[in-house]
């Protein structure tokens, strides 16, 4: 513990059931600070559920999950786990950015309001401060000219880039991407991946659930292949994608590559 860097995300034997359906059957993995990890796997493999556990949008059934050394959803005191209060959960989520498959921008707000509402409302930043950072972030994702547009007038790719800026406006220490390009028309995928590539280059810790093998190969530091609620295989992209060790990985990759 002393020599090693504290992992940004650490999962130990994480289980998650929805009623009788066990979606995660003991997931172990670690994400180092600054690491970009892609989670691959067929639909129903539990990868999105695992991502949602990290910021407590789902509650884990058993196991231990921590972000930056802090347990998710619980506080450990005298050998017991205490469920966190709503404000404590919210405080933890404020440090983790999340980007959804279907963007989920707030349709009644302009692009600028989408990006500034959480910094002002949750962190109590001044309007000037929040708007200046929002302007910088929107410039970074190439949307300076859309600052006063409403989400409905934007293309899917533009909406997703606003969603990335909205998450970054909270200055998170970890970014979660839940199939960020799956709802996009093929010609719009590139612009979103470019924004994510820039973010990765800036040193952000990222966990990306995706089917974009190009992104996994070129940008990710590690690839984790999940199937049936467990981690089947993980390692460096070159190794997992070029020379998979498990039959299930091989059969999945043969279908998507």
């Amino acid at each position: 513990m002393t020599a090693a860097v504290r992992p940004m995300v650490e999962a130990r034997n994480v289980h998650k059931s929805f009623g009788h359906l066990e979606v995660l059957k003991g997931v172990d993995l670690q994400v180092a600070p600054g690491e970009v990890m892609t989670l691959l796997g067929p639909s129903g493999s539990g990868k999105s559920t695992f991502l949602r556990l990290i910021n407590h949008l789902e509650t884990l059934t058993s196991g231990r999950l921590s972000v930056d050394g802090q347990l998710v959803g619980y506080r450990e005191e005298r050998g017991r786990l205490h469920e966190l209060r709503e404000s404590e959960v919210a405080g933890m989520r404020a440090q983790i950015g999340m980007v959804f498959q279907r963007f989920h921008l707030f349709p009644h707000m302009t692009v600028l309001q989408n990006v500034t509402c959480a910094p002002m409302g949750v962190k109590g930043e001044s309007r000037a401060e929040a708007e200046d950072r929002a302007a910088a972030l929107l410039e970074q994702v190439g949307l300076s000219d859309k600052i006063r547009a409403y989400p409905q007038s934007l293309s899917g790719g533009q909406q997703q880039r606003v969603a990335i800026a909205r998450a970054l406006a909270m200055q998170p220490k970890l970014m979660l991407f839940d199939e960020p390009t799956s709802a996009l028309d093929p010609e719009l995928v590139g612009e979103v991946l470019d924004a994510m590539r820039d973010l990765a280059a800036s040193g952000m810790t990222m966990i990306v659930v995706t089917h974009e093998m190009g992104f996994a190969r070129e940008v990710a530091d590690s690839v984790v292949f999940m199937d049936g609620g467990v981690v089947v295989e993980s390692g460096e992209p070159e190794q997992v994608l070029r020379d998979p060790q498990h039959e299930r990985t091989r059969s999945f990759l043969s279908k998507v590559l």
Partner: peptide, 19 residues
């Protein structure tokens, strides 16, 4: 998804309902 997006930004229930 609107609620989840707002939760992910660290908003609390009362603020999500209002804003």
């Amino acid at each position: 998804g609107q609620t989840e997006a707002a939760q992910a930004l660290g908003m609390k229930r009362s603020r999500i309902l209002r804003q």
